[in-house]
Structures are given as structure tokens and as C-alpha cells.
Design a binder for these strands. Structure first.
Lengths: 222, 222
DNA sequence: CCTACCGATCGGTAGG
DNA sequence: CCTACCGATCGGTAGG
């Protein structure tokens, strides 16, 4: 219904209805974008809850209000859809981290507070609202191709690059005693593992988690 | 072939061939035990590499040298086989930890060295030879029933119970600054995550990992 | 994007 | 434990 209406509206010259602003995309493209996004969102939720192999493309279609064959109009394969989920998740994570760094004026903070900022933001990405994308990326890596994996690794490097100087500085000042490379891997382990046990409805808040992490890694008190 | 030979041997009175020792089980039971173990071992490997949903019971049968329907002679269902993998992994882990504690005379060690012992042993269980069981248990929890999950939780509590007094002591002495409960979750996260990146063939050894973990958590130097 | 469909594969079972 | 098989489901496609 909505589509039919939109199509009819598109027959009217655009200028008659939208005199200002730059030209919009055609209706078809707009719809396609929405449907595509809806598929990705639903797939993220399902992949997280039931795993990639445990989710059928029919499940995903139903979640997006489509018929069983329709996802393949938008994505070449189920695997391509998985990759889209992961890629979008990583792009979003990189973006949010950049924003958090910029908003806090991170270079003015001392290293312990820099780490706090990064950890807190990481928990947000991992456990905050709409946080299915990164867990899928973390736990379904097995199901993508080597080429796709390489593309994601680049985004991951970008994300992790922001942590490196902070950890180096903490190591140099003696606050972080462990080897920096292994410390980074273990820190991400400690944080990423939280998706296994964190329950938004009870117990600790993201602030509590952040504080515990800081205390654990660099003995930083509240 | 082997089976046929064994069956023929069984027709000979046991006393004629084994004059001493307590009576053995019948050949059928012995074989069943071997086949069962072989299925569990192969399933552990496959579940780890391809995931529970990505592994077919035919794969598992082939890995054990059986025909496609035969695993169901030994296990009620694919899920029961998964549970068997997890349960055996946890029982083995609990056993090994108890042995490590006894062998080291842990109560004579000071808390930092107690933690070192537990961490080192945990890495061994997680990353040492034949270490597919625990990763499967950690990453395929989604695919077992609530009842099975409860049974494993008990074993897990037993395993974790050994860590609690150590962490408490470290907290009391100021070495561990973080909240003990959250610290425990994050420590296990840091350790368990290593199955995602650790490569036995290169870089760090299990001793290196242990040292890095100790440095990170309680600032303990080499 | 839907309809209708395909070949392949899956977990599991009966009967021996 | 094998043989032979079942119904269900799966990812994906042609044609509109």
C-alpha cells in the first residue's frame, strides 16, 4: 500500500511538491534503502540470538515483513547479509568512538581518563541499546570469507588504533605493568566477554563496569 | 575387523586369558564406551571448528568412522551429544584444577602465586592440547536446554569456587582494587577470550600469557 | 518484491 | 551398529 502510494506520488514532478532543497533520490532507491536497512537490523537481532547457522533466511524475511525469497533481491546471499551486519556494526563503532574522542577533547585528558573514556564508550557500543551488530561480528567470524574478514580487520585496526597510544602512555608511566600487546588483547577480552553475562535489567550499570575495569587494569580508584 | 576379532576373543572364558585382576566389562560395553568416546571427541572438534548448527550428525558419524544414523544409537539426539561434550569438558576442567591445587600445595602459597597457579592452569585447559571441549561449552551455550545449562552451572560454580578466596585475599590486601565479583567476571573474560586469538604455533607461550595476566590484574612483575 | 519451485541436506527412525 | 528411508527445512532462483 505504502509503496503504491509512493509510486503515484513520484509521478508528480518533484518541483511541484518540494520547491527547495537538493534533489532527492528516486522512490525506488529510497524504498530499497529502507528495506535493506530493515533486513540488516532484523538479521543482526536474529544472528545474535540464534547464530548465523541457526537463523534461516525465511526468519529474516519474516522479521522484515517480506516473503521468503525476497531478501535475495537485496543481498546476493545469506553470507553477504551477515557481512553487511558486521560491516555496519564496525563502521558505527568507529564513528561513535571518533565522536566520543572529539566531544571529550581527549588529548587534554590524562591517560587514565583517556582509558576510562574508551572503555566506557566500548561498553556502550557493546551493551547499549541496539547493540546486536558487534556481538554478531565478534561471535560469527567463522562464517565469513577470508576476503570479508580482511575488510573487517581494517576497520578493527582503525578502532584499536585509538587505544594504542593510551596504553603505551600508561605503560610508560608504570600504571600498566603488562606487555602492551598482550594487555590490549586481554583488556578487549575482559570487555567483550561482558556480552555473555551482562544483563541490562539488573545489577551493575555501565558506569559500574567501567569503574571495575579501570580498577582492574590500572588500579584506578573511583 | 577389530570388532569381529574382539567378539571371537570374548567367546573364550575370561579366566583362561586373564587370570588376575577384577572382572572386566563385557566386550559390548567396552566397545560402546570406545565408540561413545570417539563420537564425543570428534563432535568436540567439529563443534568447535564449525559450530553446533554448522555441524551435521553425518559429519560427526564420519569422523568416528560410522554410518550416518549410528550416532543415534549412542546418543538420543544431536543436542545430547553437545551436552556430553560440554559436561565432559567441565568435569575434566574441575579435575585438573583440583589436581593442580593439590600438587602445588596451594594453601602454602601466597595469594599472588595462588592466582598465578589458577590462571596458568586455566590457560592450559583452554589452549593446551585437546582443548576443544571448553571452547565449545563457552561458545555454544545457546544450543542447550535450560535444564542442561543448570547442570553445567553447578560444575562451573565448583570450578570458580577455587578462585573466590584467592580474589578475596588479593582484594583485602589491596592488590586487587576492583569489586571482586566484577573482577572475577572480567578476569575470566580476559582469559577465555584468548581462544579467539591465541595461536599455539607462534608468538607468546602460555607462560607469557600467564605473566601478562598477572601483571594486568594485580601489577605482579615477572 | 512476490509466487512457485528446485535440489540438497538435515535430524532422526524402523527394522534388522 | 548399518541400511534405507522419512518429512521438514534450507538457501537460492526464474519469471513475472
Amino acid at each position: 500500500m505504502q509503496t503504491a502510494t509512493a509510486r503515484r506520488a513520484a509521478a508528480v514532478p518533484a518541483a511541484a511538491k518540494r520547491p527547495r532543497g537538493r534533489p532527492r533520490k528516486t522512490v525506488d532507491e529510497r524504498d530499497d534503502g529502507n528495506r535493506r536497512r530493515k533486513l540488516i537490523l532484523g538479521a543482526a537481532r536474529l544472528f545474535r540470538r540464534k547464530g548465523f547457522d541457526g537463523t534461516s533466511t525465511r526468519d529474516i524475511a519474516a522479521a522484515a515483513g517480506m516473503q521468503s525469497g525476497s531478501p535475495f533481491y537485496h543481498f546476493e546471499s545469506k553470507q553477504a547479509l551477515l557481512f553487511a551486519v558486521m560491516e555496519q556494526g564496525m563502521r558505527h563503532a568507529v564513528e561513535r568512538q571518533e565522536q566520543a574522542i572529539a566531544a571529550a577533547g581527549m588529548d587534554r585528558l590524562r591517560p587514565p581518563e583517556q582509558l576510562r573514556l574508551l572503555v566506557r564508550n566500548h561498553f556502550e557500543i557493546l551493551l547499549g541499546p541496539g547493540s546486536d551488530f558487534i556481538p554478531v561480528m565478534l561471535y560469527e567470524a567463522r562464517s565469513i570469507t577470508a576476503r570479508q574478514h580482511a575488510a573487517l580487520s581494517e576497520l578493527r585496526s582503525t578502532y584499536e588504533a585509538a587505544w594504542e597510544p593510551v596504553l603505551q602512555a600508561l605503560h610508560a608511566s608504570g600504571r600498566l605493568k603488562a606487555d602492551v600487546k598482550l594487555a590490549r588483547l586481554m583488556i578487549f577480552g575482559a570487555l567483550n566477554w561482558s556480552v555473555q553475562w551482562f544483563d541490562r535489567r539488573k545489577e551493575a550499570s555501565l558506569d559500574d563496569l567501567t569503574q571495575a575495569a579501570l580498577s582492574l587494569f590500572i588500579g584506578e580508584k573511583a
